[in-house]
Design a protein around this nucleic acid. Structure first.
Length: 268
DNA sequence: ATGGTAGGACGCCTA
């Protein structure tokens, strides 16, 4: 049997329901992890998801900012809404997915963007981002009483030189500074996580999942970054059958600035 | 070198 898991920073789930519907009808992933839902739980569009066959929802929302949601066609249960950096931002939810006798732990993350100034001494938002990644070190791929773990989301860091349109020009730009890229890679490797997009697509090849709204023509200039990630424990990575980055979604009507990324696994 | 756009919510913060 196959299991497909998608991640997408949706930049307001209520405003984006038309393209969420289009995506779910077209790709039909088993699970969709959303970030930046930007609405309190009471206002989450439950019915729209249910009518599309996504009847199992795990949400963690707040007013106006952040917010994550994991929606699925199969049963899932909330494991934890973890707090980071001693505040109540809704930036994480973990769920347990049962799939053909396997139980998978699925983390859905929205890492702080970090502001514009890449200096933690003068920019508290950048300090917050670095601290947040530091605290993510507690999450190990082999953790929990499950048969494997998956970690997805908008991590707001493009770790490899080929994860940005210009490595040289972005070295001092938040999302690609060495303190961030090295911190994220250390956390990933230390936690035993496999970068599934890079397992499937060689590191020489450029990959982007985000293009700024501010470009005159995002497609023509193609100044993108890979900010969205899918990781897993080694045993789950062995089952990876494919990765799809839905670049066309950046050109849909009223798009998010991020596109969905989908991983397909072949399980027994 | 700079400013460019978008969302939530209604003056301004965040990305």
């Amino acid at each position: 049997m196959t299991l497909t898991i998608a991640t997408w920073n949706i930049n307001s789930v209520r405003l984006r329901m038309p393209i969420v519907e289009r995506f779910l009808r077209q790709l039909q992933p088993d699970v969709l992890c959303l970030q930046e839902t930007k609405c309190i739980d009471e206002l989450f569009p439950f019915e729209a998801f249910r009518s599309l066959g996504y009847e199992h929802l795990a949400i963690s929302g707040q007013k106006g900012y952040h917010g994550v949601a994991t929606v699925a066609r199969r049963p899932l249960e909330v494991v934890e809404r973890r707090r980071f950096c001693d505040n109540d931002d809704c930036r994480h939810i973990s769920t347990r997915l049962s799939s053909g006798g396997h139980a998978l732990l699925l983390h859905n993350f929205y890492v702080p963007a970090g502001g514009d100034e890449p200096d933690p001494e003068i920019n508290p938002k950048f300090r917050h981002k670095l601290d947040f990644v530091q605290e993510m070190n507690a999450l190990r791929a082999d953790q929990g009483e499950t048969h494997g773990s998956i970690l997805v989301g908008d991590l707001n860091i493009a770790p490899l030189p080929t994860d940005v349109w210009s490595h040289k020009q972005l070295l001092n730009v938040v999302s690609h500074t060495p303190v961030e890229t090295e911190g994220l890679e250390a956390m990933r490797v230390g936690g035993g996580w496999v970068d599934l997009m890079r397992r499937h697509i060689p590191p020489e090849k450029k990959i982007y999942t985000w293009w700024s709204y501010r470009a005159r023509d995002w497609e023509l200039s193609d100044r993108g970054r890979r900010l969205d990630h899918l990781w897993s424990s080694g045993n789950v990575a062995e089952r990876l059958a494919g990765i799809e980055i839905l670049r066309e979604a950046r050109g849909w009507d009223r798009p998010s600035d991020h596109v969905p990324v989908i991983a397909r696994f072949d399980l027994d």
